[in-house]
Amino acid sequence: MKTFSVSKAFTALVLAGLVLLPLYSSLSGNIFILTLFTRIVILALAAASLNLIMGYGGMMSFGHAAYLGVGGYAVGILAQEGVGSGFIQFPVALAASAIYALVIGALSLRTRGVYFIMITLAFAQMAYYVASGLARYGGDDGLTVYKRSDFSGLINLSNRTQFYYLCLACLFGVVLLIWRIGNSRFGLVVQGLRSNEQRMQAIGFPAKRYQLVCFVISGTMCGLAGALLANNTDFVSPAVMYWTRSGDLMVMVILGGMGTLFGPVMGAVVFLVLEELLSQITEYWALIMGPLLLLIVLFGRGGIMGLLGRFDRG
């Protein structure tokens, strides 16, 4: 066991950067970067939750953005109906995502492979159209959240720095939880199911039940990201659930390194920063981003973490 490795050092550097960012923002007076990174941290949280089922569980969900919508709409609808307390909004958002994941998971897990990718996509599209049909809550145009979740003095979500640290704490909490899950008996069973489902079943593990629990945990985590995202943008619309959003999340996970603990965080940071930088250089940023993704798939297997790992092995 080496004590120093390039990948660990790089990860530590990025994490330290995330922690110290508000300091830089207030010193340089650059508020924009804090807003940008709040969004990055929230989407990193969503990507990390997707990684739990994709990387550890081998369940390729192409409808993960739906939970962003479910969590976001829970906050938005409660705020609209006059329930402003975050102590109610957040638990409801999590519970709604968990129930949604339970139903979707129970049905989707009957299929596998490409069919699983497609059925999760179909359910996310259904959620998208349900949200578009909610005339009372904005329909297609979306729902403005006029007041952010109120945590009665404990933390003020309208304060940029406090909100950023709340999101960062949620991200670290989720990553820690995923790390604990990955090393637990439950996590090992789920990883075993990814490698060989038949063999695990033969040993006597109820495969679907383990996978379903993993699916629900992941969905609930992403619902948290959705609740935070609605607070961040003060707005929630069906567009957050659109299938290209699910694609973005998948790209972040694969870009960073699927099945690695910090890969999705790296992927989210690199993907969104690259998008921001390229869009500042040229209006046609996707012209560069698209082929870049293709090259990463063709030549950079294992994503960023895999690339960094290569330095360690020499």
Binding site: M54, M60, F62, G113, V114, I117, G247, M250, V251, I254, L255, M258, Y284, W285, A286, L287, M289, G290, P291, L292, L293, L294, I296, V297, L298
Partner: peptide, 19 residues
């Protein structure tokens, strides 16, 4: 390759073509 690689690579192509 893995189906997931296909999804990612062709997703990149969509971005490219649209742009």
């Amino acid at each position: 390759r893995d189906h997931l690689d296909h999804v990612l690579a062709t997703f990149g192509l969509i971005l490219f073509f649209n742009e």
